[in-house]
Simulated assay, not measured.
Amino acid sequence: MSRLLCFGAAAVSVACLATPAAAAPPTTMDCSIQTRSGHYVTAVDGGGRAADVVRTDATTVGPTERFQLIALTATTFAVRTANKNYISVVGGGGRTADVIRSNATTVGANEKLAVVPIADGWAAIRTPSGNYLTAVGGGGRRAEVVRSDATKIGPDERFKFNC
């Protein structure tokens, strides 16, 4: 008999795996992250950057569109890029410019994110400050890609984790 295990207690339908009944929940999951427009989030150069960090215009998943979600607690996770760096939310959130970086080598306060399930497999990403990440324009962008100042979940704060 198998059961459906999900990443984090709050991630009810976001990133789930069918596992044997006796198995423990996963502590890491390899995922792509899709925006509302159907595009995928890309870590430019696979991570390790402080500027031009991510894009949301990929139409297929390659190595730079794969992220490792690492469970820190039942409700928080860190995101590791292909180059083994972590995604950081600058200042913990609340920004419209210089929003994220992909050059952290360890997990600190600004690397701890939360998945907030919405419906139909969609989720929001809550920053350490309690704001939400926004894919500007719903995705499909190479510049001014992400913001971290949303105080409520709208259409552009929806992401799908494909794990």
Rank of each mutant, 00 (worst) to 15 (best):
D30N: 14
D120T: 05
K152S: 15
M29R: 06
M1G: 11
G91Y: 14
T75F: 01
N110M: 06
R36W: 13
F7A: 14
T76Y: 02
G130K: 12
A23S: 12
N103W: 04
G94F: 10
G94L: 09
I70D: 10
L69R: 05
M29A: 08
D149T: 15
V44E: 06
A123P: 07
N83S: 15
R66Y: 03
A97R: 13
E157H: 11
R141N: 01
P128K: 05
E65P: 11
G47K: 06
K84V: 14
F7E: 09
P117E: 00
T28S: 06
G138N: 06
A109L: 02
V44L: 10
A109Q: 02
A10L: 03
V107E: 01
A135C: 06
M1S: 11
S13I: 09
G137N: 04
T76S: 10
A143E: 03
N162F: 11
E144L: 04
E157I: 12
K84H: 15
H39T: 07
K112M: 04
I100N: 00
A150L: 09
S148G: 13
T73S: 10
V54F: 01
T27C: 11
G154Q: 07
H39Y: 10
A58I: 07
P26K: 05
D98Y: 06
I153Y: 07
K152F: 14
V53C: 11
V89R: 09
A50F: 10
I118H: 04
T42R: 11
V61F: 03
A143V: 01
S148L: 14
I118G: 00
A23N: 06
G137I: 06
T151A: 14
G139L: 09
R126N: 03
W122R: 05
A10F: 02
R66H: 05
V146W: 04
A123G: 07
Y86P: 08
P63N: 10
D120G: 04
V53N: 03
P25V: 06
A71M: 13
N103G: 03
F159M: 04
I100S: 01
L72K: 06
N83M: 15
C31A: 15
G108F: 03
P155V: 05
K112L: 00
P155Y: 03
R80G: 08
A24D: 08
A18S: 13
N110K: 03
A50K: 10
A58G: 07
R36G: 04
R55D: 07
